[in-house]
Design a protein around this nucleic acid. Structure first.
Length: 551
DNA sequence: GACGCGGGAA
DNA sequence: TCAAATCCCGCGTC
């Protein structure tokens, strides 16, 4: 295409011209194998990474499709070296395979003798290996079954990710079917569960509110086996239980909660990550849960939050079927590789914009409102310690008036004001005459306020980070974000997710992010927005003065 | 045993 | 980076 929207560079970055008429199609075409790096106004930068290429490979895309996508949308001739590199990187996945062996249990095998020799020379790999079993057309080597996870991690780091074809144990049979009354699986939920089931293990990526729990239930109905579900908090554990009772044939007494207060082990057991990672005298206290039953399926909820010890435990669970559920595969700690090798490749991914087009989530406008600091504030900002800087510019008093104006812009809608600093939120609450929900708000009080908000007795609610975790926040159609943590892309996604539930009137949602101009606040906000930009959400930028002037 | 509270961890 | 929120656990009361 002579005037395509994409510039493909030999350093593996892709520049996408956002306003080009082909930009959406292009974004969609490159999304499976490129990660968004920067997303300012006009040109977005993507990077073609090995992990993204291998995920694409595992999802059944071949190098030819990837290369075709680049050539189709590129404005200039695509550097040949890059095309060669992409083809070679993709070909690395699956060159080595882990397979079952009738005598040795597990073997690492390859038809490419040279690759096998190369990885066998690694000092870290050698201790995991047993006997050499060379055949006529290649080689293989025994691997101790308990090292199945470790060797995959190491091979990925060496750049030769193994395809794991060694299969799974069925686990203890347990009858589970989906309930049939009054609802049915949405098409994408069915596809996601099937994609996981055929892959055997891996990750399903769906937006907030798209019904990840239901995908988990569908996966359980495939496995028909005892299931261990790992979740981030007890509220989530409870919601899983309620949802499973509603959506499957499981009854209350078949589902156990394994948390701080209850230690039930049942055919389906829901445990928090935290209870699994608590230690006494250096030893994990509740490891026995993994061996308590012959689990046929392990579900990892919010896999992007999986703590490091759970990875180590998961390395020993490689013969169990595993499914990870998440809205965002990105991790701020860079452990995407561990998700890939220990949970599995991405098996299903639904772009948010596609879901929006099909009416599963509400359309949303994202607006960044830029506040200019006063001269005094600018000076104070410049003098502030590095640690104090973000707090200072994120909580500037000017934001209060702007927030109030934004809230008043939508007099007939339910509005959430979301922020990070309690002082700021208290002040906003007072100013807006709205209740504040924060960490030390009692659960009873939270529920009372949520209910009043649902009943429209309260129109505006100010919430702290509790909004990032607690799932049972009622729906709103407008959210105003006044501060957030540095660069947490998943935080932004969670917060936008709060307003994405389809509206009864069919209307759209509005997400405002109030940001101090020319400060680290603006930088942080830009970083948080990256994930949503990748999903096709563009931020319109407006000036706070225009808001105050009533537009 | 069902709570509520406060300390510690990460 | 810090601040904030979470959860677990042990302790008390009833």
């Amino acid at each position: 295409m002579a005037d395509g929207p994409l510039i493909v560079q030999s350093d593996k970055t892709l520049l996408l011209e956002v306003d080009h008429e082909q930009a959406d199609a292009c974004r969609k075409a490159i999304a499976p194998f490129a990660e968004l790096e920067r997303a300012p106004e006009h040109v977005h930068t993507y990077r073609v990474t090995p992990l993204a290429l291998w995920n694409a490979r595992a999802a059944g895309h071949d190098a030819e499709q990837v290369i075709d996508a680049l050539i189709t949308h590129s404005r200039y001739p695509v550097p040949h070296a890059l095309l060669v590199d992409i083809a070679e990187t993709m070909a690395r996945y699956g060159r080595l395979r882990l397979e079952k062996h009738p005598v040795h249990g597990l073997v690492l095998t390859s038809t490419d003798r040279a690759v096998l020799e190369e990885v066998l020379r690694s000092k870290k790999i050698q201790p995991l290996l047993g006997e050499r079993l060379d055949g006529a057309d290649g080689g293989s080597v025994a691997v101790h079954p308990s090292e199945r996870g470790n060797i995959k991690q190491l091979l990925l780091k060496l750049g030769w990710p193994a395809e794991d074809l060694a299969g799974y144990v069925d686990g203890e049979h347990h009858p589970i079917t989906l309930a049939e009354d009054g609802w049915e699986l949405r098409s994408y939920q069915r596809e996601a569960a099937e994609a996981f089931w055929h892959g055997g293990s891996g990750v399903v990526v769906l937006p907030c509110g798209a019904g990840k729990t239901i995908v988990g239930a569908a996966a359980m109905a495939h496995a028909k086996a005892t299931t261990l579900i790992l979740v981030t908090n007890t509220v989530s554990a409870h919601q899983w239980k309620q949802e499973l009772i509603k959506r499957t044939s499981l009854t209350e007494d078949e589902i156990g909660e394994y948390t701080g207060t209850k230690k039930e082990i049942r055919p389906v057991t829901i445990a928090t990550y935290q209870v699994m990672t608590t230690r006494r005298q250096g030893a994990y206290r509740h490891l026995e849960l993994f061996d308590a039953r012959d689990w046929g399926l392990v579900i990892y909820d919010e896999v992007h939050l999986l703590p490091a010890p759970i990875f180590r435990m998961t390395a020993d669970l490689q013969a169990r079927r595993r499914v990870g559920l998440t809205a965002t595969l990105v991790r701020e700690d860079g452990r995407e590789g561990d998700v890939f090798s220990l949970i599995g490749p991405k098996r299903y991914d639904a772009p948010w914009k596609d879901m929006e087009n099909q009416g599963w989530i509400a359309p949303a406008d994202c607006v960044e409102v830029r506040v200019t600091l006063t001269d005094d504030e600018r000076l104070a900002y410049a003098m502030a310690d590095a640690e104090e800087r973000y707090r200072f510019c994120a909580t500037t008093p000017s934001k209060t008036r702007v927030t109030e104006a934004l809230v008043n812009r939508h007099p007939d809608e339910q509005v959430l004001v979301i922020g990070q600093y309690i002082d700021q939120l208290d002040e906003l609450g007072e100013h807006l005459g709205a209740p504040v929900i924060k960490g030390d708000t009692k659960v009873k009080e939270r529920e009372r306020l949520f209910q009043a908000f649902r009943d429209r007795e309260i129109r505006v609610l100010v919430v702290s980070k509790v909004a990032n975790f607690s799932i049972d926040l009622p729906e709103a159609s407008v959210a105003v974000q006044v501060s957030g943590t540095f660069g947490s892309r998943q935080e932004e996604a969670q917060r936008l997710g709060r307003v994405l539930r389809p509206k009864s009137g069919g209307g759209g949602a509005r997400f405002y992010s109030v940001v101090s101009r020319d400060t680290v606040d603006q930088e942080f906000a830009a970083h948080r927005q990256r994930f949503l930009a990748e999903q096709g959400y563009a931020y319109q930028i407006i000036d706070a003065d225009d808001v105050l002037a009533g537009d």
